[in-house]
């Protein structure tokens, strides 16, 4: 009987993690940050059809980087999770914490039990009554969850983007300033990167809206906000 090659579990996990990290690093970045009226999502994404930022439920949104088909599958599952729970119990009983747990379980199982891990990184955010009750969870390809405050950067040059956010982020900034901070941070992906309204996907969870708090900002509105913050 021939012996199969032995690969230690440590090595196996390390290889999978490297593989997933490489996949994620190829894509462009997404930032999520708290601002005066809620939570702002900004993606460097020129596509109008393939979204990286989406609504999950009344107060919950989803942002992702990595492989589209993989995070889209997670998004669709998340919408189902939220709608099934909201229908069975009450709309108030759908929480970002519950959703983050389901995602963590799924990602964790896929990472350990399949040959190919998901090459994705997610943020699940829920806007609260005020900034202190906002919740931002960041999930990585292996199913780890981190509870974040203030801002999150994910994707290609996440470190450079996070550094820029760290320098410029101010708590309780108004929407135009928060958007400007986010766009500058995304421009830090490359030395010569310039982002205009048409190449950005922007959405907010605005706690002052009613019922469904998620709203996408159209290009014209993004342009207007960027002009406001420049003056």
């Amino acid at each position: 009987m021939s012996m199969p090659f032995y690969v230690s579990p440590e090595q196996q996990m390390k290889d999978k993690a490297d593989y997933a990290r490489k996949g994620i690093a190829r894509g462009r970045s997404v930032v999520v940050l708290q601002y005066a009226d809620g939570i702002l999502f900004v993606a460097d994404n020129p596509s109008r059809a393939l979204h990286k930022i989406s609504e999950i439920y009344d107060r919950i949104a989803f942002a992702a980087v990595g492989k589209y088909n993989e995070f889209e599958n997670l998004r669709l599952g998340g919408v189902r999770y939220a709608d099934v729970n909201g229908y069975q119990y009450d709309r108030r009983d759908v929480t970002a914490r519950g959703l983050a747990n389901v995602y963590a379980q799924s990602l964790g199982t896929i990472f350990t039990e399949t040959n190919k891990p998901y090459e994705v990184e997610l943020v699940v955010a829920e806007v609260g009554e005020d900034a202190d009750t906002d919740q931002i969870y960041r999930l990585t390809f292996d199913g780890s969850v981190a509870d974040e405050h203030g801002y999150v950067a994910m994707g290609g040059q996440a470190e450079a983007v996070a550094q820029s956010l760290k320098d410029a982020y101010r708590e309780g900034a108004a929407l135009p300033d928060a958007l400007r901070t986010a766009v500058r941070a995304l421009e830090a992906q490359d030395a010569d990167r310039r982002l205009v309204a048409a190449s950005l996907e922007v959405a907010v969870l605005d706690r002052h809206r009613e019922h469904r708090l998620f709203r996408r900002l159209p290009a014209a509105r993004i342009e207007e906000l960027l002009a406001q913050s420049a003056s």
């Binding site: 599952g77 189902r80 709608d83 229908y87 389901v102 199982t109 896929i110 039990e113």
Partner: peptide, 22 residues
């Protein structure tokens, strides 16, 4: 159950992205 260990596919809420009808 969010995962079917035998086939390696997501089960339950995450399976079959085919229908958009709740």
């Amino acid at each position: 159950a969010s995962h079917d260990p035998h086939s390696g596919r997501l089960a339950g809420l995450f399976a079959s992205p085919d229908t958009s009808s709740f």
